[in-house]
């Protein structure tokens, strides 16, 4: 795949889903994220790129308040989902996370059956009125994650028995099952082989039809392949944010250029 063949879509018509302004994150005294402002658009894949420790994962974890589970983390600034501040006192992170799903770097299926892995979210959020509806949700989610055909005959087998790529798609199905509006993916392919990576990337492109997808990646090629918007982070700063094609062909900031051409990283 070559950068010039990246599908170009017009993103100007889409409305922003998440609006972040002036976000600061501290871990104890360490200032991990400095004054980040960004708009995540609806039905778009947004890639966060940058060298290790640049703050891209930290920022991702702010978007569904996963940083709450880290005792030392402190978040300042405003992050609005559909115009509502997700760090408002009245917001229940439990409800928030049902609307903003997340997929992790390493596949982390629960030590339960494939079915129970996917049904977990709908069950705790009470999304199904009966068994038939739950079955339906599980099937839809597995289909959406392009896993249904591979596992439909062994839904009661443990999820941990699947291959790495299948496990990651199972985790995606699990995230999709709660019907989120935004899907956050933290280096979802870093533990996968090239074939599994290609499958997941194809899946991301499909998911973009319904959700707003945010993906953190180390691989610039991957960012170029799957995303329409790209944000480049460096040392806790958001250096540059724009259309993927523009970032990769005509970066505005010299630091972006250095990173893309491989001089820093």
């Amino acid at each position: 795949m070559n950068l010039m063949q990246t599908p170009v879509s017009d993103t100007t018509a889409l409305k922003p889903r998440i609006t972040a302004s002036g976000v600061q994150v501290y871990y104890d005294t360490n200032h991990a994220l400095k004054d980040v402002s960004v708009n995540i658009l609806d039905r778009t894949t947004t890639a966060f790129i940058g060298p290790s420790g640049c703050g891209k994962s930290t920022f991702l974890r702010c978007l569904n308040r996963m940083n709450d589970t880290v005792a030392s983390a402190r978040v300042e600034g405003k992050i609005l989902l559909d115009g509502q501040d997700i760090y408002d006192k009245r917001v229940d992170p439990v409800q928030l996370r049902a609307r903003i799903g997340m997929v992790f770097q390493k596949p982390n299926p629960f030590p339960k059956s494939i079915y129970d892995n996917v049904a977990y979210g709908p069950r705790i959020h009470g999304l199904a009125r009966n068994k038939a509806e739950l079955d339906e949700i599980v099937e839809t989610s597995l289909r959406r994650a392009a896993l249904w055909n591979e596992v439909k005959d062994r839904l009661s087998a443990p999820g941990t028995g699947l291959s790495g790529g299948q496990q990651q798609r199972l985790c995606i199905a699990r995230a999709v099952a709660t019907g989120p509006e935004v899907l956050l993916m933290d280096e979802p392919c870093s533990a996968l082989d090239p074939i599994a990576t290609a499958q997941v990337e194809a899946l991301i492109d499909e998911l973009r039809e319904q959700y707003s997808v945010v993906i953190v990646t180390h691989s610039m090629q991957q960012a170029a392949r799957v995303s329409q918007k790209t944000a480049f982070f460096h040392l806790g700063n958001l250096v540059e944010y724009g259309d993927t094609q523009q970032i990769f062909t005509n970066p505005q900031d010299p630091r972006t250029e250095s990173y893309i051409t491989g001089r820093i990283g």
């Binding site: 509502q84 917001v91 928030l96 949700i137």
Partner: peptide
């Protein structure tokens, strides 16, 4: 169906 009945994050 799966969408929660309340859309606001605050309630």
């Amino acid at each position: 169906q799966a969408e929660p009945p309340v859309k606001s994050l605050f309630e």
